[in-house]
Amino acid sequence: MSHIPSAEHATAALRLMDGFSLEMTGKDLAGLEEARVSVPPGTRVNVTFLGNEDLEMRVAAAAAVARAGFVPVPHISARRLVSQAQLEGFLDRLQAVGATDHVFAVGGDPSIPEGPYPDALSVIRSGVLQRHGVQEVAIAGYPEGHPEIADEVLWEHLEAKHAALTEQGLATVLLTQFAFDTGPVTAWIREVRSRGIDAQIRIGTPGPAGVRRLISFARRFGIGANAMIVKKYGFSLTNLMGTAGPERFIGGLSTELDAEPAAGDVKLHFYTFGGLPATSEWARSYVADIQRQETA
């Protein structure tokens, strides 16, 4: 495999890959079953909360993750919740299948809230989560900003969410939007730590996927993807028929974090744009290649 980190930075790359997490939708039960052989036991698998999925699909996916020997991290999309009763019902069902220890609370896509929760902070402050056995809450981070939210508001909410979770005795994880450029990611990590937030950080990373698909998601989420950035990442905007993986991104990030002793606990979270089986198999092969290089 190309773009394996140099021997000098191989340890840092393995440290970054150790304990990576994955993402799946409620519809991807077949993909989860196929990926089982490639995913290390105990891996966190996030289960999305999309508008085209229903309660049964989300709960079934979380239950399947737990049965497979992985750790389910169900998403709670604040603005998609129509009532506190719906949130309570969702958490009741998740708790029944052993899937409420870890959750990801996020604002969600709708520009107008469908119920009483305008953002993830309001869900956290409601006190509902810990009543259903939640021990740890992941919250969103945006190294390149958000197309519709000012940076100062993002930082204000990040700090408020972390403070509210700490006050409630719940652990915090910062889970970021994906990026193609390591520079903003490293700068964002530095800023997080300078604000006194020592929570684990999981850097959103695109799994291997078609270039056209990657660009589509980048545009949707306001991710920097100009010609210079994507060339650094490993593909060209003039060739949209190919595929691209995150080898260069991970190698570059691990090198930069090696020079940031205050970076703290940083892991990777893979967005499975190319499918859960392809991403998990890629991760298994990538780690094996680095380990072979270290022992060669």
Rank of each mutant, 00 (worst) to 15 (best):
G89E: 02
F90Y: 13
F90C: 07
D92S: 15
G98Q: 10
A99I: 07
T100N: 08
T100L: 06
D101E: 15
F104I: 15
F104T: 13
F104P: 02
V106Q: 00
V106D: 00
G108E: 09
D109E: 11
D109T: 08
P110H: 06
S111W: 05
I112W: 01
P113S: 11
G115S: 09
P116N: 04
P118K: 07
P118M: 03
P118L: 08
D119S: 14
A120W: 03
L121Q: 13
S122A: 14
S122G: 02
V123S: 11
I124Q: 08
I124Y: 01
R125T: 12
R125E: 14
R125I: 04
G127Y: 00
G127S: 08
V128A: 13
V128Q: 06
R131E: 14
V134W: 04
V134T: 11
Q135V: 08
Q135A: 13
E136H: 11
I139A: 01
A140W: 02
Y142S: 12
Y142N: 12
P143K: 08
P143I: 05
H146D: 07
P147S: 05
P147K: 03
I149M: 04
I149D: 01
I149R: 04
A150R: 11
D151H: 03
E152L: 06
E152V: 09
V153M: 01
V153T: 15
L154H: 02
E156G: 09
E156C: 10
E156F: 09
H157A: 08
H157T: 15
L158N: 04
E159W: 00
A160C: 07
K161R: 13
K161W: 01
A163T: 12
A164I: 02
A164E: 11
A164K: 03
L165T: 05
L165E: 02
T166M: 09
E167K: 14
E167A: 15
G169C: 00
G169I: 01
L170I: 03
L170N: 07
T172G: 13
V173M: 12
T176R: 07
T176V: 10
F178P: 15
A179C: 12
A179G: 07
T182Y: 07
P184H: 07
A187L: 12
A187R: 13
W188Y: 15
W188A: 03
I189R: 00
I189M: 03
I189G: 02
